[in-house]
């Protein structure tokens, strides 16, 4: 990996072939790392992908170049250290590492408190899952007892469906992200009705279009997982599914919604943190970091989406990163506030 900026728009297509190539959204706090993704190929070290300055295309950088050009914060260096060494970085791994770094206090006290609360909630989800899965699987497929603990680990981010945990039980990360994305859609749709300029209306339409298209496929993926979990005990009992196939099947389904939603939590937090007065200002930044699913998602369940049309519209807006307007101290503070809002 070279230590200088390696490539611009021409070197990377706007839509990558796979989620692994698109990389995981990294909730860094340094302003110049806004919208960054991390990926790791089959060989070689991890790479950073950054929205290009002109608003079109992506920079590919090694970490040393990043240290040189982007002033990563202490928080970002800790997060990088935890993810870059992973053989196959995933959104779930990034979420866990980001919570751990925030728990240690690297993003400030509010983010630390939010991370601790999120970790407690995650533990509660796991406890609830253990009970639900045992009640469902053991009566029909007592041989599946050994599968329960790894199934809890696989399903900890996705849960097993609405109403299957008690009403007071906390929601898992992925259903939470879907609810947050629905709220984002409603909020930006209402805001666009009152937007002052054509540019604002265009930006809002692009963000709303991307969010709605993502919502449909992410929800379809999650429903497919929950359906599979619901049917599994009977299918295991009938011998239609082998025990050895259960975990890979669930892991594949559970990861789909996570990959599709990867990056949207930060987009929603950015929008929510801006408040009514700052939304016009934050829209350009938001459009520049919209997560665009790779071609791999085309073959997944759910309605087909017009991503190419949306990307053409985004090219017309061509927003640059927020830090190009200065105010690095304020942006770093805001990014830390986002860690508290979306731990």
């Amino acid at each position: 990996m070279q230590d200088t900026i390696k490539g611009f728009a021409a070197s990377l297509p706007e839509r990558q072939a796979s989620f692994a190539e698109r990389g995981c959204a990294m909730p860094f706090t340094a302003p110049m790392l806004s919208g960054a993704r991390l990926r790791r190929g089959s060989s070689g070290p991890a790479e950073m992908l950054l929205p290009a300055l002109g608003g079109r295309g992506v920079y590919v950088m090694g970490w040393n170049a990043c240290l040189l050009h982007c002033a990563p914060s202490l928080h970002d260096r800790q997060l990088w250290d935890r993810i870059a060494t992973q053989e196959r970085p995933t959104p779930a791994l990034v979420r866990a590492a980001a919570r751990e770094v925030a728990r240690l206090g690297y993003a400030g006290r509010p983010a630390q408190a939010a991370a601790k609360a999120a970790l407690r909630q995650q533990e509660a989800v796991r406890d609830g899952l253990r009970d639900v899965l045992a009640a469902r699987f053991l009566p029909l497929a007592p041989d599946a007892a050994d599968l329960l603990a790894p199934m809890v680990a696989v399903l900890a981010q996705a849960g097993t469906g609405p109403g299957q945990l008690s009403e007071r039980s906390p929601s898992a990360a992925i259903p939470q992200a879907i609810v947050a994305l629905e709220a984002f859609c409603a909020s930006i749709a209402a805001w666009s009705q009152m937007a002052q300029t054509p540019q604002e209306r265009r930006g809002a339409a692009i963000a709303l279009g991307a969010a709605r298209m993502t919502l449909l496929v992410a929800d379809a993926s999650l429903q497919a997982l929950w359906r599979t979990v619901a049917e599994l005990p009977a299918r295991l009992a009938r011998g239609e599914v082998r025990q050895g196939d259960v975990l890979p099947l669930l892991a594949d389904l559970a990861s789909r919604a996570d990959w599709l939603l990867d990056g949207w939590t930060m987009v929603g937090a950015l929008w929510a943190a801006a408040g009514a007065a700052g939304r016009g200002g934050v829209l350009a930044e938001l459009v520049s970091v919209l997560p665009v699913p790779p071609l791999e998602a085309e073959s997944w369940p759910g309605p087909r989406a017009e991503w190419d049309t949306l990307l053409r519209a985004r090219r017309m807006v061509a927003p640059g990163p927020a830090w190009s307007c200065g105010g690095l101290v304020d942006l770093a503070q805001r990014n830390e506030a986002l860690r508290a809002l979306a731990p």
Partner: peptide, 23 residues
């Protein structure tokens, strides 16, 4: 304050490299 909180103050004031030196 703990050391991370001291380091954060230095980071805000003088940048991440100075904070790393403190750590």
């Amino acid at each position: 304050l703990n050391r991370i909180e001291f380091a954060r103050l230095v980071e805000i004031l003088a940048g991440p490299d100075a904070a790393l030196a403190l750590q």
